[in-house]
């Protein structure tokens, strides 16, 4: 039981971290909470299902197209809905909340209420060290998720674009004074945040089929991870995601599976009591 809880906790943790990275990026740079994050995750899942299953496109290409489309949709959302609200965080919050409801109902109309999933990348299950059987698609999702997180870290820490992002998230005015076009940066960052939601969606849709409302728990978990790890901290997302995944799985294994979601909130409350800014958050002076 310990081994499967550990393994599953790590897998779910990476999945949670991936879903939360986009939220963290947008919060960190723009101070915007995107309530439609889960719905964009679902949209990518639907796109990959549509291209791969309905149109017969190669599943890798289908995933790339899905992420690309959601990225462009993110740019459009920023331009049309978020940009006019700069200076008032509450407006963007309300707008993205409305957007999430509109998207949920649009999915219901277009795709229907039944779950949909793109084809599996790999079939079957693997015997892990003779201890338990583990689904190959989950292992593939774990590998893809970990690789994607690593790529994001390299982009943020090692590239010129990453430096600009970090600079703007630390001191927006100073970045502007140094010639950073923060309006364009906001647009790109929002698009990137949406693309990260989409990447999580296409990686996970073969494991967890998408439905019109399946984005709600995804977004909720992502917000919990972001708050747990510290607003805007990428390391916080990874550590927060893994903590949440492990706590949920060990709680379900050794206490009760009926309270799986409660464990996550309990650990969140405990962390916030000790460190109100989250595990890796910067305390405001």
């Amino acid at each position: 039981m310990f081994a499967i809880s550990l393994m599953n906790g790590l897998v779910m943790g990476v999945i949670y971290a991936l879903a939360a990275l986009g939220v963290s990026l947008v919060v960190g740079i723009m101070n915007v909470v995107n309530f439609a994050h889960g719905e964009l995750y679902i949209l990518a899942g639907y796109f990959s299902y549509l291209f791969a299953s309905a149109l017969g496109v190669n599943f890798v290409l289908a995933m790339v197209i899905a992420v690309g489309l959601v990225f462009f949709l993110g740019l459009l959302i920023e331009y049309l809905l978020i940009r006019p609200t700069y200076g008032n965080d509450m407006y963007s919050l309300i707008l993205t909340f409305i957007l999430s409801i509109v998207l949920q109902n649009a999915y219901l109309l277009i795709f229907g209420p039944y779950p949909n999933k793109p084809p599996l990348w790999v079939q079957g299950a693997t015997d892990v060290f003779g201890l338990f059987l583990y689904g190959n698609q989950r292992l593939a999702a774990l590998a893809a998720g970990a690789a994607l997180i690593a790529v994001i870290f390299v982009i943020i820490k090692k590239t010129w674009f990453g430096r600009i992002i970090r600079a703007a998230s630390q001191d927006r005015e100073m970045a502007e004074l140094n010639g950073v076009n923060t309006t364009r940066l906001n647009m790109l960052s929002f698009g990137l945040g949406c693309a990260l939601a989409a990447a999580a969606g296409v990686i996970l849709a073969p494991v967890f089929p998408v439905t019109p409302t399946a984005g709600v728990p995804v977004a909720l978990t992502a917000f919990v991870v972001v708050v747990l790890g510290g607003m805007g901290s990428l390391w916080g997302c990874v550590v927060g995601g893994l903590t949440l995944g492990l706590v949920e799985n060990f709680g379900a294994a050794f206490i009760s599976s009926g309270y799986k979601n409660v464990f996550g909130f309990m650990i969140l409350i405990l962390v916030l009591l000790v460190r109100p800014s989250g595990l890796f958050g910067r305390a405001k002076i």
Partner: peptide
């Protein structure tokens, strides 16, 4: 089990 749970491995 939790109603909204997607994962039942444990």
């Amino acid at each position: 089990t939790e109603r909204n749970s997607q994962d039942h491995y444990v």
